[in-house]
Amino acid sequence: MRKSTMIVTLVVVLLFIASWIFKTMTAPEVDSTFDALTQGFLVTFAAFLTLAIMSFLYQDNPFYKFAEHLYVGVSAAYAMTLGFWSTLVGNLFPRVSETLCGWFQVEFSGQHDWQFLIPPILGILLLMRLSPKGGWISRWALAFIVGTTAGLNLPRFLRSDFIEQISGTFLPLLVDWEGFGHFFSNLSLSASGQFVAILSNFVIVSGVICGLIYFFFSKEHKGAFGSASRYGIWILMITFGASFGYTVMGRISLLVGRLTFLMDDWLGIISG
């Protein structure tokens, strides 16, 4: 271990202990689930993990790696435990075995439903992946999953993402049309106004059609077709921009969430 690494580790450990002691002394007593010592540890540990992950912004380091691996491990274990209790104990055992129900203290459904044994068999087949020789058997279960998912999804996607979307584009290009005189005399940029309604319908319809034209590969994009395709790619780029903007907003929200935790729950320095 390098000397600088040792110093940093020592400082982190000392800060951790200091924070633990401080948070234990200032722990609110309202929380009855944990005693003050545990509460102090939990807040300090959460703050440590947050800072460890954030330290990646400076550069990769052992604290980051520790926090990342811990996160991956804990969420996998949590999902597995919850899956066991909600799926096996919650859904399967009450339908197949009275003895197991008694063991896990859940109510038995009253009758044995043998068709519910098929899913666990498929599950065991999936686990055969771990065996170097019998690995191929898992493909049967995988084939079942891929096949049923595709079959389930096809009609749903065609309905919601295709047919409903096509008929959703059947928009009137002239909303509340009562002639040009009426249109110009009521011209306004208000969101509920006629002009904006007509404009948005026009953008949606032209955007969908020109976007489709951009993805039309059987004809060279020249002339009017080329213009429509260029308009299509503009619309696509604006969409990507909006999407990018939303992503930035989302990431900042997460930062705000973590900073609020650090400044309020851990350091307790927020005013007001």
Binding site: I166, F170, L171, L174, V205, F216
Partner: peptide
């Protein structure tokens, strides 16, 4: 896609 474009155009006419 060509069929989709055609059906949308007819649909807009129909809405009109």
């Amino acid at each position: 896609k060509a069929m989709v474009i055609a059906s949308i155009l007819i649909g807009i006419g129909a809405a009109l």
